[in-house]
């Protein structure tokens, strides 16, 4: 067992856990923050996406002990125009991928603003965010319900 002090949604959370516990399990199983979802536990679906100091990460691939001192934001701690936009654009059906999509989109918007390049944008720039660009940058977040059009619509509305 190791002691870790996580900072989640602005609150300090001391934990006594085994070192192999993922950040995702720490959130869901130890802190009761079940808004972050587990879809694969292997980094393949994006359902577990959270923000660490504003950057999107797959929390299933992160060890909780590595994130001591970082500011973790989960869907429960988010208050963002994307949330309403997802409802208006019907950017989900079952809702299981939604927390991950929203956290990922928040991180993605910041990456784009910072000029981070992608396969679509040959040259990094913080310019306008096209649908193709959103689709490329959001491809780590699977939605089996196939709500992709609505998700892109919601992100476009907020990015404007």
């Amino acid at each position: 067992m190791v002691e870790v002090r996580l900072r989640v949604n602005g609150t300090d959370e001391p934990l006594d856990i085994q070192p192999q516990v993922s950040l995702l399990d720490a959130l869901r199983e130890y802190l009761g923050l079940t808004g972050t979802k587990k879809g694969c536990d292997q980094g393949a679906c994006g359902a577990c996406t959270v923000l660490a100091d504003g950057e999107r990460i797959n929390s299933c691939l992160a060890l909780a002990v590595q994130y001591e001192g970082r500011e973790i934001t989960t869907i429960e701690g988010l208050d963002h125009p994307l949330q309403g936009a997802f409802v208006r654009h019907d950017g989900f059906q079952c809702g299981y991928c939604t927390s991950g999509q929203i956290c990922s989109a928040v991180g993605m918007l910041a990456e784009h603003k910072d000029g981070m390049p992608s396969a679509v944008t040959k040259q990094a720039s913080g310019g306008e965010l096209s649908a193709a660009e959103i689709r490329e940058r959001m491809s780590g977040n699977l939605c089996r319900c196939g709500a992709y059009n609505g998700i892109v619509g919601a992100i476009q509305e907020v990015a404007r």
């Binding site: 009761g32 079940t34 808004g35 988010l78 949330q83 208006r88 939604t98």
Partner: peptide, 20 residues
Amino acid sequence: DRVDGTAKTTGAARFAAEYP
């Protein structure tokens, strides 16, 4: 709009493995 939309976009919706 879906009646359960807000529950799903805020993380409040609880799925089967999420009941304490």
